[in-house]
Design a protein around this nucleic acid. Structure first.
Lengths: 208, 208
DNA sequence: GCATGATTTAAACATGCGTTTAATCTAATT
DNA sequence: AATTAGATTAAACGCATGTTTAAATCATGC
C-alpha cells in the first residue's frame, strides 16, 4: 500500500531535487511542477510564491541541522582546549543527521546552501542570516578563542574565505566530483569533500 | 579636444562597469545600452550576441593579464626553491598591470572573473578554461613541486577550494568590503583583499 | 554632389518567467 | 443527496529578456 503523497510534498521533493542540481534562479516553476506531476498553479496555491517555496525547501533541512549544530558547539565550549580543526569537525554531526530527512540529505543541503549564498538572492541571505545568525555568532566566538593570535580583520576575512571555499566546492561540486571520480577512479560524495575541506580551512585559518 | 569614443568602446565600458557590479546574468542589454547612451540593437550589431559581448569584455583584460602571469611563472620556475606563498604572490604583478587597461582594472577583472565562475555560464567557463588552461596547468605543476607532501587528490581539492575562496571573496566582495570598512574604519580595496587571501590559501594548501 | 556602404534607430518579435483568474473537480459534512 | 469548503486545472496576464527587422541617417570615396 503506497501512501498517497500530498501535492505539497511532491512539490517540495521535486523542487529540492532541481534546486540542488541547477540552483534556485535556474530552476523554473514549470520545471518543478512538471517533475512533480502537478499543476503549475499549485505552487502559488500551496506556498504563495517561488520565494516562499525556496524557504520551505530550506526549512526542512534547517530545522534538523541547526539545533544539532548548536548542541555540538555547546559541547565544544565545555572542552578545556579549543582546537580549530576540532570545531570544524563538529559540523559533520548535524550534517550526518540530515540522512533522516533524505538519504542524500547532507549532499543536497550543502548544495542548496551553496546556491543560497552564491546567487545574490537577497531574501534568502536575509532568511539564512536570520535563522543561522545566532549559531554563527557562537561559532565565531569559539574560533576567536581557538585563534587568539589573529586580529579582528584577519578573522573577518578568513571566515569569509572559508565560506567561499565551502560554498564554491558545493556549487561546482557535482562537476568537480565527476572530474575527481574520473581522475582517481573512486566514488566521491559530499562528505568526502568535507573531509578534504576541513584540514584546508583549518590550516588557512590558523596560518600566522 | 575630447576624442570621439566609438560605439563599441562605449558599450564595452558600460558593460564592464555593470557586469563587474551586478554580474553577467543580472545585467540586461537594455541597462548596458542605456548606460552607454547607445541604441539597444547596437550590441547585436557590433558584437553579435550578449555572450560575445561578455567574452569581449573579458578579453580586454585577459590579453594583458595572461602573458604577464605566464612570464612570472617562468621566472618562478627558475628559482632554486619554490615556496607556495611565493607562487601566489606572483599573481600580484599581472594584476597590477591591469591598471593600464583601467584605473580600477585589478578590482574589475577579479570581480568579472568571480562572476564568470560563480554563475554557471557554461560558455564562459569553457572560454576561460580555453584561455587559461595552459597557464593554470603550469601553476599546478609548480604548486606540486612546492608541495611534494600532498597527494594528487589533496592537491586537486585544495586548488578548487582556493579558487572558491578567491572567487567568493570577489563576488561578495563589494558587500564584504563595505562591512569591513564600516567595522574597521579604513579604506579597503581588492588588492587588500588579495593580501589577506594569500596567507590564507598558502596556509590551507600547505597543511599536512 | 551624389552614390554607396556602414551605422544607428525605433519598433516589433519570440520566448520564458512568476503570477492570477475563474471554472471545475473532489471529498467530507449535514 | 445536497451543500460547501478545499484542491486542481487550463488558460491567460503582465512583464522582462535577447534578438531581428527594416527604415533612416551618417560618412566616405568618386
Amino acid at each position: 500500500m503506497t501512501a498517497r503523497i500530498s501535492t505539497q510534498k511532491k512539490i517540495l521533493n521535486a523542487a529540492e531535487t532541481l534546486f540542488s542540481r541547477d540552483g534556485f534562479e535556474q530552476t523554473s516553476l514549470r520545471q518543478i511542477t512538471q517533475e512533480a506531476g502537478v499543476n503549475l498553479a499549485s505552487v502559488n496555491y500551496h506556498f504563495g510564491s517561488k520565494k516562499a517555496l525556496i524557504q520551505a525547501v530550506m526549512a526542512r533541512y534547517l530545522v534538523v541541522f541547526m539545533p544539532v549544530l548548536e548542541e555540538q558547539l555547546q559541547l565544544a565550549e565545555q572542552q578545556s582546549e579549543l582546537k580549530t580543526e576540532e570545531l570544524f569537525k563538529r559540523f559533520k554531526i548535524p550534517l550526518a543527521k540530515l540522512t533522516e530527512v533524505n538519504k542524500h540529505g547532507p549532499d543536497i543541503f550543502l548544495r542548496l546552501l551553496g546556491f543560497a549564498y552564491s546567487e545574490i538572492q537577497g531574501h534568502l541571505r536575509k532568511y539564512t542570516q536570520q535563522e543561522f545568525g545566532g549559531v554563527l555568532q557562537h561559532l565565531l566566538a569559539l574560533l576567536k578563542r581557538a585563534n587568539p593570535h589573529l586580529s579582528e580583520q584577519q578573522m573577518f576575512w578568513r571566515l569569509h574565505f572559508i565560506l567561499g571555499a565551502a560554498v564554491f566546492a558545493q556549487v561546482s561540486g557535482q562537476a568537480l566530483i565527476e572530474i575527481a571520480q574520473a581522475e582517481f577512479n573512486q566514488k566521491v560524495n559530499a562528505q568526502d569533500v568535507i573531509d578534504h575541506l576541513i584540514p584546508f580551512v583549518s590550516g588557512g585559518l590558523e596560518e600566522a
